[in-house]
């Protein structure tokens, strides 16, 4: 039985403490960067579930990001429902699209599957740009609401007008989603995901309903990306079509692989590194895709398991192979 104070747990706790306290010491600009990192981390974590742990490479997650964002925008702005119903509706809609697209797409394997997801992302991008009546076309949507204040005991209310509040709101979801993915992956259900990612034919021969399991993974992954999209829309209050631009999905994938697909820390490390460092070096946004591409290329050739994967390999030699828990050591 793993001790409560294992190195990984302490590492995560420290990271959480830093994430919570950092905005209080740095200025508003850096906090907004952290918020964006948090949002993109959510997408990376969701993609990690599908690719890192179930072995399905999707280039289409920009679509779910966009669907989540626009669903919140459209429902919130045009239907005048309060934020919270619209928020949960947007999440549900993203999940629904994930489910509907997953059913046909997951029948295909290898490059076929990748192409369908890319095609889907392209279609969503085109529709978002073209269906001006619904989405505002190239002008996008404005006026996406912030979360409505939540009444608290002692006559106080939790307001979301400030950057700080939105940051903690986003962080809350990042932690929640990461925890859910962690639980999923370590469970017996998660074992079937990993089996599928290692050898889908063998998994099937052993009696695993691979289509069903892949669909579960895909739907949850889409749903979480939808959450990220809705959070982005709410924070920005303006949505423009480039949220659904297919290259976004590739940027996230790059972050995931550089950080380390198939590890819990990988998506967050990767997103942080690929976002924070260019910011710190004041690299022009137009250069970002170019640099991301180069970094991804270097990693896929020399360190395909990413930063977290590299560290894992380094420490694996020092660890004794105990069969702790479900066999996998720890979180990261």
């Amino acid at each position: 039985m793993k001790s409560v104070f294992s190195p990984e747990r302490i590492g995560w706790l420290l990271a959480l403490i830093v994430a919570v306290l950092l905005p209080l010491v740095v200025g508003g600009y850096l906090t907004s960067i952290l918020l964006l990192i948090a949002i993109w981390s959510i997408v990376a974590v969701s993609l990690n579930l599908l690719y890192g742990y179930t072995g399905q490479l999707s280039l289409g997650h920009s679509a779910f990001l966009g669907i989540g964002a626009y669903a919140l925008g459209i429902i919130g702005v045009k239907l005048h429902i309060g934020f919270w119903p619209a928020f949960f509706a947007a999440i549900a809609i993203s999940g629904l699209f994930g489910f509907l697209i997953g059913i046909p797409a997951l029948k295909l394997r290898g490059p076929y599957f990748v192409l369908v997801t890319l095609g889907f992302a392209a279609i969503v991008g085109v529709i978002v740009l073209g269906w001006t009546q619904l989405t505002g076309g190239a002008n996008g949507l404005a006026g996406v609401p912030r979360p409505t204040p939540i009444p608290l005991p002692f006559g106080k209310t939790l307001r979301f007008d400030s950057l700080l509040a939105m940051y903690y709101f986003t962080l809350f979801f990042l932690v929640l989603i990461a925890l859910i993915c962690h639980r999923l992956v370590r469970s017996l259900l998660g074992r079937t995901f990993v089996a599928i990612s290692r050898d889908e034919n063998l998994a099937e021969a052993l009696g695993i309903n691979t289509m069903q399991k892949k669909l579960i993974s895909f739907t949850i992954s889409a749903l979480f990306s939808g959450v990220a999209g809705a959070l982005y829309a709410s924070y920005n209050s303006v949505i423009s079509p480039d949220i659904a631009y297919f290259a976004r999905g590739m940027d996230v994938l790059a972050c995931l692989i550089v950080g380390g697909a198939g590890t819990m820390a990988g998506p967050m490390i990767g997103t942080f590194v690929m976002t924070a460092i260019p910011e710190a070096l004041q690299i022009v946004p137009t250069l970002r895709t170019l640099i991301n591409g180069f970094i991804l290329l270097i990693f896929i050739i020399f360190l395909p398991t990413g930063i977290a994967g590299g560290f894992k390999a380094l420490f694996a030699r020092r660890r004794r192979s105990l069969s702790s828990g479900m066999g996998r050591n720890g979180i990261a």
């Binding site: 072995g55 490479l57 280039l59 290898g110 490059p111 990748v114 290259a247 590739m250 940027d251 994938l253 790059a254 692989i257 022009v284 137009t286 250069l287 970002r288 895709t289 170019l290 640099i291 991301n292 591409g293 180069f294 991804l296 290329l297 896929i300 050739i301 395909p304």
Partner: peptide, 22 residues
């Protein structure tokens, strides 16, 4: 593993697109 080759092709796409944009 062949996914790595897919990713490499994707990375090339990013490099070319980014380069062209720049």
């Amino acid at each position: 593993p062949e996914v790595n080759l897919f990713v490499a092709a994707m990375a090339l796409l990013m490099i070319l697109e980014g380069g062209a944009l720049f």
